[in-house]
Design a protein around this nucleic acid. Structure first.
Length: 850
RNA sequence: GCCGGAGUGGCGGAAUGGCAGACGCGCGGGAUUCAAAAUCCCGUCCUGGCAACAGGGUGUGGGUUCAAGUCCCACCUCCGGUACCA
């Protein structure tokens, strides 16, 4: 230990042990719920949540403690402000790395996971976060995933009531009387919110699993960047699309960064338009298209079907069959990556068939092309090349006619996709785009040719993975084809032991390797096999914030009374990378639980903050290959957890991306040492002689009250960096005093405590207190004492500063004016002219206009 | 392409439309020391000047205003997200 520095490691260890031994941060439910509880039920509650980490073998990186420190400061601050604070932590522990390791080494993923959790818990504890570790959850614990499976059964056993726009138990589903037996069963299965589907999916051969749309980025897997191809497979899906509208509406209620809301808004991708029927010339078949621009119907010069569209086989003429078939096969084999790459050059084939434009009877050719997606809208479009960039490109390449039907306000080259005035549009000519849309939609509805329609980009959530290390589905496939859910009493369905963890290449998951587990006999004697897919990693994180409220409950996922007390999450801090994945999925789950009456509010996360990324010292993203990774353990050993916490907050605004700088850690470490020496004698280790029971002088009192005000206000608005600056100013001031008023120092220690809790506790104790300061009331400031007595004003002439004057804080406008005009420098700058106008901004400046 | 966010000293950053650069890092000088480390004090936006001081300055160009880093318009650069969604 250097001279002038306190013994960081000893003090931090001492207090971490103290908190643990005394259960300082145990969170009690209010006495009305738990009769044993010492918690005063009249206290307001505050739920501060961190996005729980994946326990990786790498352990914590410096990005984790950033959000965790911010939330810990808020949690500690709120406790001092008299809130009953829930501040938990847990482990999002299912996931690929542990399974990949198992495939390579044969180590059970549970073992690897446990080891990683233990290491990360150690690291997190070493930072002195005030979590209630009795509430830890681990998504891989059967006592936890029992309830994940339970929620899955809720999805399975529910349908969506369109009229009420909410989920209801499947028993309440109205079933057409005519149906019975197999048909009836099929009807019910088709309405479940969890359903099976044989659909083309994102298959990643390298990972041996399918991926959700959200996990595929630019045709490559989000994890690992492996190619992804489309392949039809049987999969479990969750009907998130039923909730599009409510997921959009809910965004209005929450206090989230606008950018995140917009990301979700765009991901859901609502578009309003019309569906229009085009008759196929010479046939009874009708092609239905979706368009957001029904006002351009007169400009539709051809149609395009997605290669997978069911009518392609029906309408293709004999002479086109071979070419069309070849194109379809090519498209189906293309990976998403290829499709994206080839996006620059449009391809397609005419089917030989023609359609009739419903507005003018024009005969227009029908093509197929992979620029039309089967999964959006109706899988078919009317092409209006004059007013759609993609159609323009296609029409230009294949020499298809282009007819202008919208006149732009100012002439433009090429395609015009904006709004304007209709031309070449029969009776509708002359209408504005907006008017046209309304009129033509009405007309289409009257004529029975179309209808207004809404489409969403969001697709149903592909909810199964061909992996070992995930929650097993509580589902049995009976021999006769019926899908039978386990009863709630049979949960949890635990993972079987298997000899090895490799997927079977064919897409058959590793669970199929365990025959004992796989084959079952149902209570009614039928034989069946268990579902061998497992749930995706997102499943466990969809509801963990609810389990924290009641982590040991064996009877329910959580008790209703506890949910009513603690929810919603008042503050949720985590990385922006979860903007559309975790945050959308968990909102969806929450809404199901809300519909079924298990939770009391439709939105789980009231306020959301994204911490920014921390870059390496070279300003680049931290990565092993660049060798610029900062290991928190090393920083803590060298400078201590308090310095680590303080530095992470001092670097800049929480949301910003900012580079690490080891010398900056030194800087805050010096500040803590200074604060220490303010109160402790370096030589003797006793309380410094300068610490005295004397009243603070005026300047000190004022600065103290300013500091209490500033730090409190900054914590409330998450401006941690400026709060720390203010504390530095206070310490710099106190250092100069020979007699340091003890009362002011005590208040300062309390203010410092949420940021640097270890050193604050130690100083608090040395100042003569026996109890932890964690529940000491946050010091109050007196608004009167915050005010300066005398203030310096800048005096400007024509906006340029010429002099500074000092006046009493309560000086009137006239007095200030007089003082300002009396200044020699001001007189000189005015050059004898008379002031035209004198602007006095109290406590700021004076501007003289001549 | 489109959608976000950001451009302020050598660096991280601070500034309800009101004194640009708080606080910290770094750097320069001094004190202390046999010396160093640590600590303390002074200085540190740029240009000119010994100095008092003068002039310039928040990516670029315009505008609004008594007053613009902050508001408006156009543009440039960087970072992040996204990709044929009709």
């Amino acid at each position: 230990m250097e001279k002038g520095a306190y013994d960081v490691n000893a003090i931090e260890k001492k207090w971490q042990e103290h908190w643990e031994a005394n259960k300082t941060f145990k969170t009690w439910d209010p006495a009305c719920i738990d009769p044993e509880s010492p918690c005063d039920g009249s206290k307001p509650k505050y739920y501060v949540l961190d996005m729980f980490p994946y326990p990786s073998g790498q352990g914590l990186h410096v990005g984790h403690p950033e959000g965790y420190t911010a939330s810990d400061i808020v949690a500690r601050y709120k406790r001092m402000k008299g809130f009953n604070v829930l501040h938990p932590i847990g482990w999002d522990a299912f996931g690929l790395p542990a399974e990949q390791y198992a495939i390579q080494t044969g180590t059970h993923p549970a073992q690897t996971t446990q080891r990683n959790i233990d290491n990360m818990r150690r690291q997190i504890k070493s930072l002195g976060f005030s979590y209630d570790y009795d509430r830890e959850v681990d998504t891989t614990d059967p006592n936890y995933y029992k309830w994940t499976q339970w929620i899955f059964l809720k999805f399975f056993n529910s349908y969506f009531d369109e009229a009420e726009q909410k989920a209801r138990p499947i028993d309440e589903l109205p079933i057409p009387e005519a149906l019975s037996g197999e048909e009836r069963r099929k009807y019910i299965d088709e309405h479940r919110l969890a359903y099976e589907s044989e659909a083309p999916v994102n298959w990643c051969p390298a990972l041996g699993t399918v991926l959700a749309n959200e996990e595929v980025v630019g045709g490559l897997s989000e994890r690992g960047g492996h190619p992804v191809i489309r392949k039809p497979m049987r999969q479990w899906m969750l009907r998130i699309t039923k909730y599009c509208e409510r997921l959009l509406e809910g965004l209005d209620e929450v206090d989230w960064p606008e950018s995140i809301k917009k990301l979700q808004f765009d991901w859901i991708g609502k578009s309003i338009g019309a569906e229009v029927d085009f008759k196929v010339d010479g046939r009874e078949d009708v092609i239905r298209v979706f368009t957001t621009r029904p006002d351009t119907l007169f400009g539709a010069t051809y149609m395009v079907l997605a290669p997978e569209h069911p009518l392609v086989d029906v309408i293709t003429t004999a002479d086109r069959k071979a070419a069309v078939q070849q194109y379809r096969e090519g498209a189906s084999r293309k990976s998403d990556l290829d499709r994206t790459d080839l996006a620059k050059e449009k391809t397609g084939e005419p089917t030989g068939a023609y359609a009739l434009n419903p507005v003018n009877g024009e005969r227009i050719p029908i093509w197929i092309s992979d620029y039309v997606l089967i999964s959006y809208g109706t899988g078919a479009i009317m092409a209006v090349p004059a007013h759609d960039e993609r159609d323009w490109e296609f029409a230009t390449k294949f020499n298809l006619p282009i007819i202008q039907v919208v006149a732009p306000r100012e002439p433009v080259e090429g395609c015009f996709a904006g709004e304007g005035v209709a031309v070449n549009s029969g009776d509708f000519t002359g209408l504005s785009t907006a008017e046209f849309k309304l009129k033509i939609t009405d007309w289409l509805e009257e004529e029975g040719l179309g209808t207004r329609a809404v489409n969403y980009k969001l697709r149903d959530w592909l909810f199964s993975r061909q992996r070992y290390w995930g929650e097993p589905f509580p589902i049995i496939h009976a021999q006769d084809g019926e899908v039978v859910p386990l009863s709630e009493g049979d949960l949890p369905l635990t993972l079987p032991e298997v000899e090895d963890y490799k997927p079977m290449g064919t897409g058959e998951p590793p669970l199929a390797k365990s025959a004992d587990w796989l084959n079952v006999t149902l209570p009614d004697g039928r034989k069946g096999t268990r579902e061998t897919n497992t749930m995706p990693q997102w499943a466990g994180s969809c509801w963990y914030y609810l389990r924290y409220m009641d982590p040991d409950n064996a009877e329910a996922a959580f008790a209703k009374a506890k949910e009513e007390y603690w929810m919603p999450v008042d503050l949720y801090i985590g990385g922006a990378e979860h903007a559309v994945l975790h945050l959308l999925y968990s909102r969806f789950w929450h809404k199901l639980l809300y519909d079924l009456g298990y939770v009391s509010m439709p939105e789980p996360f009231k306020k959301l903050i994204n911490q920014g990324m921390i870059l390496g010292e070279d300003g680049q993203k931290m990565s092993k290959s660049r060798g610029n990774v900062i290991n928190p353990d090393n920083v803590i050993t060298q400078y201590g957890a308090d310095s680590m916490r303080l530095y992470e907050m001092f670097m800049g605004p929480l949301e910003a991306t900012k580079p690490w700088n080891m010398q900056g850690v030194e800087g805050v470490h010096r500040f803590l040492n200074k604060a220490w020496r303010l109160m402790v004698d370096e030589e003797t280790g006793e309380l410094a002689a300068a610490v005295q029971d004397v009243p603070a002088d005026e300047a000190t009192t004022r600065l103290l009250h300013q500091t209490i005000k500033k730090v409190g206000g900054d914590v409330e608005s998450f401006g941690f960096n400026t709060a720390i600056s203010q504390m530095m100013i206070f310490v710099n001031h106190m250092m100069r005093l020979d007699a340091r008023p003890k009362d002011a120092l005590e208040k300062f220690v309390l203010v410092l405590a949420p940021f640097a809790p270890h050193v604050a506790e130690e100083l608090w104790q040395r100042l003569g207190h026996d109890e932890t300061l964690a529940y000491e009331p946050w010091p109050q400031y007196d608004p009167e004492l915050v005010k300066e007595k005398e203030i310096e004003l800048a005096v400007q002439v024509l906006g340029k500063i010429k002099d500074k004057i000092v006046v009493a804080a309560d000086a009137g406008e006239d007095e200030i004016k007089e003082t300002a005009l009396a200044s020699e420098k001001v007189q000189a700058a005015m050059g004898g002219k008379t002031p035209k106008k004198v602007i006095v901004i109290k406590s700021r400046l004076v501007n003289i206009v001549v």
